[in-house]
Every structure is written in C-alpha cells, then in structure tokens.
C-alpha cells in the first residue's frame, strides 16, 4: 500500500497523470477517491475491502477529461477495463493502471495486452454466495424459478443503482428513458421490473465480466448480478469466449458463426 501511495504521488508530482482514481477510508468501508495532487496521495488505500468497480468512472468524460490519468484496479475492475477496451471506449495512451497482487507487489499496466496477460493468471471462480444461490436456482423447476424471480423483483423500486454501478452500462441514453412511446414503464411494478431486468441482462450478454458491482449496489439485495453471471458462464462455450477474459474478437451479439447452435429452430 505504501508503494502505491509513493508511486501515485510521484506520478502526480511529475505530471505523468493529472488524476488518480483510487480508494480512501470511508465511514464504514473504503469509498472511491479522486486524487488530484501528490499531497492527497497519502490518503489512498488499496486492500481486499476495496471492491467498488472503479472502471465505472473511466468512461466518464466530464471526470477524466483528455489528460492522462491512473486508476487503481483489483482483478474484477481489470476485467471490466478489458471489456471497455474491446468496445473501443478507452484510449490506451490515456490510462495507466496501478494494481497490486495478493502478495502486495505493485504492478503498472499500460495496454490491453499487458492487462490481458496479467488477468490470465487469475481464474474467474464462483464465490460462496454465488455458488449457493445459483445451485439453488439450478435445482428449481421452471415454475419455481418464475416465482423465485417474481418474489425477488417485487422488491425492486427502480433506483437503477445496478445501472449506475456497472462499468459497461455507459450509454448516455438508456432504453428505459425511451419514452416515445414509453418502452419500459418507469414505475416499479411486476411487469415493468421483469422487463427492465431482462433487458439489462440481454444488453449484458457476452459483455458482463462478473464483477458483481450491480448486485453489490442493489439496496434491497436482489441477486441480479447472478443473472448476467450465469449467462456468461452458460454462453461462453457457445460463443467461444473465456469468462472474465474479454478478447478482441467482437462481442457475442455483434458477431456470429455459421455453425451457431440451431436445434431449437424448427
């Protein structure tokens, strides 16, 4: 952590970057911190409690501007950044990534290939919570799944925290704001909630990197991150990508193969 602070301070002092996006100590847990001077760098922290996906800020033009900046990124964030590169949302020359491995060794990554090589060392695994809930869902009948999600979705009050927390939800105009005609009803109601969450999942197919930020952000604790996560796991072999390691081969839904699965088409 000390190494990270020193490095960040040095980068800011010699003008290599004008901003370091990192974490500082919050009231109960670390919170995002935008460090603009070398004096502030001493407030930076980076440990296992820093799970917010800071990649959500790197596409915000009003925040990062055109100057070079640095971002401290754990593995989950690196995966999101790779996907953002794949979608041409980031400039390699503008961003420097500071990360530390579990042993505390500091790494500086500057390009898609460097990040990709680093992330490849870490396999994407289901955590205890994911395993438990997904195992439960996998054992259900269709009717039970419908009831399960209907119950879960009944708590949703459309705060769109899931959308704000997701680094890949960077559209400036979202489908739920399409109102001529109103495409998805803005109020929280069973159908409107179901449509929003199915829409969100559909827009994430082949893009989600399972950082879990959406589920973490949900104020009522709906396990929405598991929908996109399960899609990623199930469709990865189908669409030929490695979960959690985005590659520059086009997104699942923007590309196709002649031999895509067709048994369900009569």
């Amino acid at each position: 952590m000390e190494k990270l602070r020193e490095r960040a301070a040095a980068l800011l002092a010699d003008g290599t970057v004008s901003l370091v996006i990192g974490f500082e100590e919050g009231t109960k847990r670390p919170r995002p911190f935008f460090c603009r001077t070398s004096d502030q760098a001493s407030k930076l922290i980076f440990d296992s409690r820093c799970f917010h996906n800071l990649a959500v800020y790197v596409t915000k033009k009003e925040l990062v501007g055109k100057e070079p900046f640095a971002v401290t990124a754990p593995i989950a964030t690196l995966r999101s950044i790779l996907q953002l590169y794949v979608e041409n949302q980031l400039k390699e020359e503008q961003m420097l990534i500071l990360t530390a491995d579990p042993a505390g060794e500091l790494f500086e990554l500057r390009s898609f290939d460097e990040i990709s090589a680093y992330v490849a060392n870490f396999e994407l695994k289901r955590g205890e919570r994911e395993e438990e809930i997904l195992h439960k869902i996998e054992g259900m009948t269709r009717e039970e799944r419908w009831q399960f999600w209907l119950n879960e979705m009944s708590q949703c009050f459309k705060c769109y925290a899931c959308r704000s927390a997701c680094p890949l939800c960077y559209c400036t105009k979202c489908v739920v704001e399409v109102n001529r005609p109103q495409w998805i009803h803005p109020w929280p109601a069973p159908l409107a909630n179901m449509e929003w969450h199915i829409n969100r999942a559909m827009h994430m197919v082949g893009r989600c990197t399972a950082c879990g930020a959406c589920g973490e952000a949900c104020p009522v604790g709906i396990p929405i991150d598991l929908i996109t996560r399960k899609m990623m796991e199930d469709l990865a072999p189908e669409f030929g990508y490695i979960p959690g390691l985005p590659a520059r081969q086009g997104n699942a839904l923007s590309s196709w193969r002649l031999d895509d699965r067709e048994q369900f088409i009569r």
């Binding site: 269709r142 009717e143 199915i198 399960k230 899609m231 199930d234 469709l235 590309s255 369900f264 088409i265």
Partner: peptide, 16 residues
Amino acid sequence: RRRWIAFRAILDLMGI
C-alpha cells in the same frame, strides 16, 4: 440467431 440463443437462455433462467 445469436440473439435468440441468448434470449432463450435468459428467459429460461427467469422461469419464462
């Protein structure tokens, strides 16, 4: 076709 593969998978997960 790709969209339908994905969409069917999501609907099935949601219990539709």
